[in-house]
């Protein structure tokens, strides 16, 4: 397995993050953990955007990942973090394999609306489930890592951070390869001209299906890590505005590079933290105007700022 330049840089950055984790203050660690975990969910949104589909319901898998981790610890005695996260991804994959059968028949706004509807269905179910704390959700049980129990508070926060960085690195490398592999490129081809893909003897639907399921797994991992980090899950995770936020971050970063969603999510989290503190009732307004500005001035997202500098004049 040979690593290319991007992969080596990703690895170095991840290493730097882990080391940074030892010296940085707790609030910053927490903020970064949440941002990176969200970025994983956004990676799922971006994977679908590459294939031309905008999911306004990625919160579904974020929520599934989170709730599975929470329920695994609370009800089924699964306390190992890795096992819980994997279970979350597994459940998401199963759900996606079912929903994907229907969803891959739709494009454009129909896909957006139907994916939204599915996440709202989960929201509706969770809100009415007393055992799961209905609208309040419930707390995630203390967890262990290979039998070792990090001390509550700072210790566990630091462990989740490291886990998130490592997961982020693994996912980033995989997605980086995926994007250049047959399925990645041909999913983009589907976006660009579905008729031609069909006439090359390929099934756009099955390509989108595979992509949808893969994206669901990645997003569920993000949801699971968020649950571990915050120690709490609630139905809001599946509400459509949560998914809207993921779409926002995806557009902010752009589709240019695997690193873009991470950067965008971190920018997003910082701006949000300060905006909510200093200008409480204008946070969404800032988002709205930013989104319009991105669409008008940076249609390829924040990443285009970075790549423009590097490659000079490539519009």
């Amino acid at each position: 397995m040979r690593l290319d330049k991007t992969e080596i840089s990703l690895g170095l950055i991840a290493l730097a993050c882990v080391l940074f984790g030892f010296v940085s203050p707790g609030w910053l660690i927490f903020l970064l953990t949440i941002a990176l975990a969200k970025a994983l969910v956004v990676q799922g949104v971006v994977m679908q955007m590459r294939s031309g589909l905008v999911s306004f319901g990625q919160g579904l898998f974020y929520c599934i990942g989170g709730y599975t981790v929470g329920m695994g610890g609370q009800f089924f005695g699964i306390h190992d973090a890795i096992a819980a996260l994997s279970l979350g991804m597994f459940v998401a994959i199963v759900v996606a394999m079912l929903l994907g059968l229907l969803l891959t028949r739709y494009r454009e706004i129909f896909f957006a609306m139907l994916s939204l509807a599915f996440s709202m269905i989960l929201f509706g179910i969770l809100v009415k489930s007393q055992e799961l704390g209905s609208t309040d959700g419930f707390n995630v049980h203390d967890w262990t890592l290979f039998g070792w129990a990090p001390e509550a508070g700072a210790g566990s926060q630091h462990t989740v951070f490291t886990m998130t960085v490592v997961s982020g690195l693994i996912v980033a490398v995989l997605i980086h390869r995926y994007t250049k592999a047959g399925i990645g490129v041909i999913c983009e081809a589907v976006r660009e001209n579905e008729v031609r893909v069909e006439y090359l003897g390929l099934s756009p639907r099955w390509l989108l299906y595979g992509n949808y399921v893969a994206a669901a797994a990645v997003s569920a991992l993000g949801g699971g890590l968020t649950a571990l980090a915050t120690g709490h899950v609630d139905p809001e995770m599946a509400y459509w505005t949560t998914s809207g936020e993921f779409v926002f971050i995806a557009l902010l970063g752009g589709l240019g590079h695997v690193a873009a969603p991470f950067i965008a999510a971190i920018v997003f989290s910082f701006v949000r933290t300060y905006a909510i503190e200093f200008v409480p009732h204008t946070w969404q307004m800032i988002l709205g105007f930013t989104l319009l500005a991105v669409i008008i001035f940076l249609p390829k997202g924040l990443w285009s700022l970075v790549s423009r500098e590097k490659t000079g004049e490539r519009a």
Partner: peptide, 19 residues
């Protein structure tokens, strides 16, 4: 290249590069 890959197999690979 996309057309060539499609001609080779109806199931595109997940991780090995297309180009």
């Amino acid at each position: 290249i996309v057309a060539l890959a499609a001609a080779e197999s109806a199931r595109p690979s997940f991780l090995s590069p297309l180009r």
